[in-house]
Nucleic acid binder design. Structure first.
Lengths: 244, 244
DNA sequence: GTCTATAGCATGATAGAC
DNA sequence: GTCTATCATGCTATAGAC
């Protein structure tokens, strides 16, 4: 999670080098952000267990669904006993909060970092699309979980999920509006275009199996999406990134 | 479910008039397609109960998830006792099969009916996009359920879900390839464009709450999507449907 | 901090009366 | 065909030893 200014257009390797998405770092941040939930005192132990538990939760919940995942199965998968698990969380729902909240934090930060300082609408759109895509690629289980489980959550958590969706959609919306006002984009319905952009970005992590089966790389997906948006927005300037 | 030839471009009311998606009709078809699952002999009774049960299942499962829905809650919602319910199905998983299989059948038939006989690639693409959109609009709870629950199903059912997704994507893919070969579409990556088209079509029923909140009608969504695809495919001919 | 053992309850499915 | 009553099982969460 760097605060360095946005590099010029990204490939996936450069993106991964520019941000620290290591599980340890993420779990350390989570540990300090949730002192009332996690009752373990020693950071080292807490971070290690948190990593195991979150990892196991994502694996099981993404396979059979969070509701169908039993706490026994989670313990087995995480290599902890029931007692050990319940020292980390108060109840099953806490898990969702932990996982979600951090994904939200990351999305805000990464999208902010990578679009910050870019004023040209087209370059800004490229940066937003590409960094969103790369972030979800790097943290796919996390985003898949959030998308699929958001609707089952207690109202408070669900509201957060809707808010972050709206927030990132607004980022796209505002860029498109800027571009239209600057006379660089065709006067499309910015709200709908932003929604559809989000839908295409989400499809990448929702159907990753399909895309892997047809051998589509994340760079190629991004290039296709950026080209599609260029055509829709009536822009002639070609993409600067390599279209592998 | 008519077999009449495709009408020229559709609005939603004409679509609904052309196909019979009444719950009774659908449940009658389901009843006759699953004689070994449904052990009730009198058609009238079976169809009425089936309608209640499916309706209640979709309502509860779409709210809290299928796994989290208890059979007791389902009975309450459907106005049946446990015994009454278990005369309709053998176990909880049968419910999924019933619901899914019919959605699949409908998708195949409607998309087939409404693109059949249209050879011009652009008109065919319009027809496929529009009828897919209208079908999912008419049967939203059904499609939402299928999308969200598919991954939790026993392998056989999951394979069906993947197959139907692939099948409809192929429909779009083949139309785009035809258009490219005919020199009417720009030479895009047809597989990726088909996937993204599907993603945008699915977003309509996955986030219907959002679209309702921003007052987007199904016709407007369709018009926007068709326009976006036209631009991407480098087509100049405007849309024939009314863009409300 | 981490374990085992268990309390207390809801679940899916069935039996048998009407 | 539909009901009520009941079974065995598996669940979340906790208590208490180490």
């Amino acid at each position: 999670m760097s605060n360095s200014p946005a590099p010029d257009i990204l490939d996936f390797e450069r993106f991964m080098a520019a941000v620290d998405l290591s599980q340890t770092e993420i779990c350390r941040a989570l540990y300090h952000a949730n002192p009332q939930t996690i009752r373990i005192k020693k950071e080292r132990v807490a971070v290690r267990n948190l990593a195991r538990v979150i990892d196991a939760t994502l694996r099981l919940a993404n396979r059979r669904g969070f509701a169908a995942m039993s706490m026994r199965a989670l313990c087995r998968e995480a290599g902890l006993s029931m007692g050990g698990l319940y020292a980390m969380i108060q109840n099953k729902d806490d898990l969702v909060g932990l996982i979600q909240s951090h994904g939200f934090m990351l999305t805000r930060q990464i999208l902010g970092d990578f679009t910050h300082g870019i004023t040209e609408p087209l370059a800004r759109l490229d940066a937003a699309v590409t960094s969103h895509l790369f972030l979800t690629e790097a943290m796919r289980p996390w985003f898949y979980f959030s998308y699929m489980e958001a609707r089952h959550l207690p109202a408070a958590h669900r509201a957060d999920a809707v808010a972050i969706e709206r927030e990132t959609e607004d980022l796209f919306h505002d860029i498109i509006i800027d571009g239209i006002h600057a006379g660089q984009f065709a006067p499309v319905d910015a709200r709908l275009t932003a929604s559809m952009t989000k839908a295409m970005l989400q499809d990448w992590y929702l159907k990753r199996g399909k895309y892997r089966a047809q051998n589509t790389s994340v760079s190629r997906y991004g290039a296709h999406l950026r080209a599609l948006l260029r055509a829709h927005l009536g822009v002639e300037i070609p993409d600067q990134a390599t279209d592998r």
